[in-house]
């Protein structure tokens, strides 16, 4: 199986605080990979290192066999919905996506319309982003992450702020993208959502991976015969 993401002994300190501690991670191509952890476990820092936004203190990262330092190839390979979600509020949704499409060198005129349709924002395409609700911004951020047709999608709390229907829509979209072969690296606090969507899950605690595998493998690692992902999470993280 070809590896989409390889993180080798990834380490990051913030002053005296060890945010991520010699983290080892292997995500296969086409996998729907869940990334869990309590608040402050180092999830966002890990995602930021894997996407080249934060420089690790130590360790190596390979994304589709490109070194993380190869910024140009990495940017064309990955799509990211980051934790920080700033938008240019003075643009409309369509103008915003068009700006990012141009940054990626995408000139097909219908690509923005197709994406707006996919995330359910066609009716709001001419509205200024300043008038968007939190859920609409979330969908727009997801559309931006997909603008370059990435082979790996990093998502940090993608359904945050969405109503149940919105969550369902996003989950269906992600399932269909994964079925089309996209690797998805998915970080969320909604454990039901993660257990429904992800084929493999890693649990991070205090900057270290404490368990990794399928739901059944996680149960074994937590010494539980049965139980939900929430039970496993609480056992393994001592939260």
């Amino acid at each position: 199986m070809i590896e989409a993401i390889i993180a080798d002994r990834l380490t990051k300190h913030y002053g005296a605080t060890m945010a991520v501690d010699t983290l080892q991670l292997h995500v296969r191509q086409g996998e729907f990979f869940g990334f869990l952890g309590p608040n402050g476990a180092g999830k966002t820092t890990t995602i930021r290192m894997l996407t080249g936004v934060v420089n690790p203190d130590e360790g190596n990262i390979l994304i589709n066999n490109f070194s993380i330092k190869d910024k140009s190839n990495i940017a064309r390979t990955i799509g990211v919905l980051p934790e920080s979600r700033g938008f240019y509020d003075w643009l409309t949704g369509a103008e915003y996506l068009d700006f990012f499409a141009r940054l990626y060198g995408i000139t097909e005129r219908d690509s923005v319309a197709v994406l707006l349709e996919r995330v359910g924002l066609t009716a709001q395409r001419k509205k200024k982003i300043s008038a968007y609700s939190r859920g609409m911004r979330q969908r727009l951020g997801l559309a931006r992450a997909l603008i370059n047709k990435p082979s790996i999608l990093f998502l940090d709390e993608p359904t945050l702020g969405l109503d149940p229907r919105g969550q369902q829509d996003v989950q269906n979209l992600l399932r269909s993208l994964n079925q089309d072969g996209m690797t998805i690296f998915y970080s969320s606090h909604l454990l039901n959502e993660v257990s429904e969507l992800c084929s493999r899950i890693a649990i991070l605690d205090k900057g270290k991976i404490v368990a990794e595998g399928t739901l059944n493998e996680l149960r074994q690692q937590a010494d539980r015969q049965a139980g939900t992902l929430t039970d496993i999470f609480l056992t393994l993280t001592h939260a």
């Binding site: 996407t51 910024k71 940017a75 979600r85 700033g86 940054l103 370059n148």
Partner: peptide, 14 residues
């Protein structure tokens, strides 16, 4: 400050 830099630099922008 408006947290737009992260998305901008995730694109192939030097």
């Amino acid at each position: 400050e408006k947290e737009t830099a992260e998305s901008l630099f995730l694109a192939p922008l030097s």
